[in-house]
């Protein structure tokens, strides 16, 4: 057990947990932010994707002890009013079915669009193929990313 000070969505959290506890479970069970989902626990499905200093990571496979001062952003903190271009594009495209994987999909896409504001279809395929959607909404996810990308650069 050890005490860790984390910044999640611009708020400070102090947790006393096993240093090996994955960030996912600190976010969900200790910070109480349940928008980040558990899917596989081995970085294969992408449901747990969050940003560490702006870069998408699989929070299920990162021990809390490795976070340090890196800033954590979860789906709840992606935008102030739920108006990130991807969130708006997801709404316009009516992407989700069950919705469970979608936070991870959006977080993954948000990080990737920062580096590639105008991706090709093949680039979207490659960057998004680490995120599983069992409902099969892939075509709508792709469409929403294309829509958001058209809206301009993403910072």
């Amino acid at each position: 057990m050890a005490v860790f000070n984390l910044t999640i969505n611009k708020e400070d959290y102090k947790v006393d947990v096993d240093p090996q506890m994955p960030l996912l479970w600190v976010i969900r069970d200790f910070a109480g932010l349940t928008g980040t989902k558990y899917g596989c626990g081995i970085a294969q499905c992408g449901a747990c994707t969050v940003h560490l200093d702006g870069t998408a990571v699989r929070s299920c496979s990162i021990p809390v002890s490795s976070i340090g001062t890196q800033k954590v952003v979860t789906i709840e903190g992606l935008s102030e009013k739920g108006d990130h271009p991807l969130q708006l594009a997801w709404e316009e495209t009516d992407v989700p079915q069950c919705g469970y994987c979608q936070a991870g999909q959006i977080m993954n896409a948000a990080s990737f669009l920062k580096d590639k504001p105008h991706p090709t279809d093949a680039e979207i395929d490659n960057m998004m193929s680490g995120n599983i959607c069992r409902c099969g909404t892939y075509n709508r996810i792709k469409k929403a990313i294309q829509l958001a990308a058209k809206g301009g650069d993403h910072e």
Partner: peptide, 23 residues
Amino acid sequence: TSKTNYDLKDIVTGKQKYGIDTK
């Protein structure tokens, strides 16, 4: 007509609760 998923906003902002989120 087309009416988007009623829970859409909550899903894309992480507010939507699933069973696993019950505490």
